[in-house]
Design a protein around this nucleic acid. Sequence first.
DNA 1: CCAAAAGTGTTCTCCATACACCCATGC
DNA 2: GCATGGGTGTATGGAGAACACTTTTGG
Lengths: 229, 229
Amino acid sequence: MPFTYDYPRPAVTVDCVVFGLDDGDLKVLLIQRADKPFAGRWALPGGFVNMDETLDVAARRELKEETGLSCDYLEQLFTFGEPGRDPRGRTITVAYYALIRRAEHRIQGGSDAKEAAWFSLHELPSLAFDHDKILESAHKRLQGKVRYQPIGFNLLPLKFTLTELQKMYEAILDRPLDKRNFRKKILSMGVLERLTESQEGVAHRAARLYSFSKAKYADVVEHGFNFEI
Amino acid sequence: MPFTYDYPRPAVTVDCVVFGLDDGDLKVLLIQRADKPFAGRWALPGGFVNMDETLDVAARRELKEETGLSCDYLEQLFTFGEPGRDPRGRTITVAYYALIRRAEHRIQGGSDAKEAAWFSLHELPSLAFDHDKILESAHKRLQGKVRYQPIGFNLLPLKFTLTELQKMYEAILDRPLDKRNFRKKILSMGVLERLTESQEGVAHRAARLYSFSKAKYADVVEHGFNFEI
DNA sequence: CCAAAAGTGTTCTCCATACACCCATGC
DNA sequence: GCATGGGTGTATGGAGAACACTTTTGG
């Protein structure tokens, strides 16, 4: 069946807001653009969608190409398509946000990118295109979603302490949480596996390690339980 | 600045899941396709995005062209871009969902559409493309969002009774709500204007009419209140 | 023994839920 | 006067929020 639509078409790209955790600080991965437009400016990693790949795959591929990273969680965010958002011509971008376990990865600049680096959300440079708008909406989405879906674990090592877990939520939600209430709640959900091991190499009492259990989470959801921080 | 990217491009469309209320029943607006592919099948209203219009505008325009309707609320839902979802070739669709006050509008088939009609969510025909998937995710989004944002009012006449309001939520959430608790809660939010008028033309005690007040809602939000059903 | 973080319970308030009867109106 | 939906209050249980001290470990 031939495609009968031969009008001009917009270009379609994907862009990716990648979040990572640095102790108690939420960071975003940016690349420095090598080419015009906005050469030298910082931007979200991303690029054009190939004709035979899904949008998700395009997002993962571009991220890999430009920063060397694979993400642990990826979710479509929003599609931005204002005429004029790209000075080269009509470009529609499907934005994603991703979470990665920073400790386990090493970043490196790629083909279209001079350099890649992590920025704290409080010290962002001026960004190319409408990427500041995309970044802001990704941050809001993350803040909303992390409270009722167990996605935040993708920012932590597979084994973590309750304090690390709490700090992760505090970093994302940007407000302090009460230690006793937090522990009571998260433990009562029954989605954590308490490991026999403890923290090592700290100059104080070692904390117990925990891991997130997908199996326990599936059980709990099955029985109508709601995850909520 | 010339556009240096001259690879083949996917086609970009918008599709719209339009919800309307029919007494206690949530309905969706579908059109019957005039042309191939899927000629004669029911589908979501939608079509190609023009080069100089925003995505939102494209959604409203297509809706108007194919059904004669203007929507009271429109929100971007998700972008579907599987290669192969359109047999004519790679097509990426930005899906929207819309809410309209059915009582105030009259539908009519348009250019690309043989016919437009409302379907109950429980009696859906087989749909063209991946439109059943889009419809399902729109329904889920609506169920989620209606609980913490006052968007449901866009399905009701500007003046409504508390019973109509409750039935709207019951239709969307697909479960019964307790009358006294519902009234207590919605009134305590302080976002409704109680009008002096009452219902007319009913064969029983006439109910008080209310309207949603944007101003009151803005106040309440400003003071940190959370709308939640 | 000191510094640093781990770990632990109780009280109070508020909100969600469950639940049944009288009232006003049109026919 | 009867059928139909409109309108109202209270009691109970559970969850969220506030809050401070003891324990363990390494240096």
